[in-house]
């Protein structure tokens, strides 16, 4: 067969060009930027960009607040991601179990928060946490949810609220795709609802759970909108609270070279964590 070269170019080039211009080139540019530094001759002399090798990375390594912010989002992720996905899984299993009436309503009700943009959700919850406005006064008048100790978990709640329904829907769709004969067999063998869910349904939807976990890891490392909004509600959120905030505030100084080095390190960390998680689950899947 004659290769349809023209058609292929027509299909691939438009996306390919945009992907190159707005993904590959910026990544290359960030790497290049991170290898340069700004040098001044004297205190008031003109600034010049000169090659600095790995000097910016040296500064990243020595930057305490940046690594604190990485630690903070890792802590956030270790606690929030399992809670969020656990909730999503339980709700999806219940929807799928046949024990619940009004499935269409619940599915929609749980999904609605996903329609709320992250910034807007953070503003809403910021109000809900504020003692003078909140409907939950018994809570907010006794506990300061916006204090330095709790504000991280207050934000975890916002992220959980937005994304449980979305993750639930992905897992639920995976459950719907399982042929019913599989369950029939289990029922004939005398397996109860709980047993079926634990030993049959969860293993079958593992790919969906892995996918949602990877996306959640990426999302956690990229936390920006929520902490940025919470800075107006709570003085406990500093300008280096999350890695992305650090990048943003470094670039507003402006110190683009250091900010670029931060971004490169963050991108590498994100990819490394996602791949490590994928490899881990694949290996475990292979042993079974």
């Amino acid at each position: 067969m004659r290769k349809p070269v023209k058609a292929l170019l027509f299909f691939i080039l438009p996306f390919g060009l945009l992907f190159t211009a707005f993904y590959l080139v910026p990544i290359g540019y960030a790497i290049k930027q991170s290898l340069y530094k700004v040098e001044r001759t004297g205190t008031f002399g003109p600034a010049r960009e000169v090659f600095g090798g790995l000097e910016q990375y040296q500064r990243v390594l020595e930057n305490g607040p940046f690594w604190e912010s990485i630690g903070r989002v890792l802590l956030f992720g270790v606690v929030q991601v399992p809670i969020m996905l656990g909730l999503a899984l339980v709700l999806a299993l219940l929807l799928d179990s046949g024990l619940v009436k009004g499935r269409r309503f619940f599915r929609l009700a749980f999904f609605v928060p996903y329609a709320v943009p992250g910034v807007v959700a953070a503003i809403m919850w910021g109000f809900l946490y504020s003692p003078n406005l909140s409907p939950f006064t018994t809570v907010t008048s006794n506990v300061d949810l916006l204090s330095a100790d709790l504000v991280l978990w207050a934000m975890a709640n916002v992220v959980t609220w937005v994304y449980v329904g979305y993750n639930m829907l992905i897992i639920y769709s995976a459950l719907l795709a399982v042929p019913t004969e599989v369950y029939e067999a289990a029922r004939i063998d005398g397996a109860g609802q709980f047993r079926t869910a634990w030993s049959i349904k969860i293993p079958l939807v593992m790919p969906a759970i892995v996918l949602t976990t990877v996306f959640s890891i990426i999302g956690t490392l990229q936390l920006l909108a929520e902490p940025q909004v919470f800075r107006t509600f709570s003085s406990a959120v500093s300008s280096t609270y999350t890695p992305n905030l650090t990048v943003y505030s470094t670039s507003s100084i402006p110190n683009f070279n250091l900010a670029a080095a931060f971004s490169v390190v963050l991108a590498l960390a994100t990819c490394a964590l996602s791949f490590a998680f994928l490899k881990m689950t694949q290996r475990r899947g292979g042993e079974q």
């Binding site: 992907f19 707005f22 993904y23 080139v25 910026p26 990544i27 540019y29 960030a30 930027q33 990426i218 490392l221 990229q222 920006l224 992305n244 990048v247 943003y248 670039s251 683009f256 900010a259 670029a260 971004s263 490169v264 963050l266 991108a267 994100t270 990819c271 996602s274």
Partner: peptide, 19 residues
């Protein structure tokens, strides 16, 4: 293309701004 999914938004937004 698939590895593009893993790239954090800031890693792109900042260089995009400079470009």
């Amino acid at each position: 293309v698939l590895s593009g999914v893993l790239v954090p938004a800031t890693a792109l937004a900042l260089p995009l701004f400079l470009i």
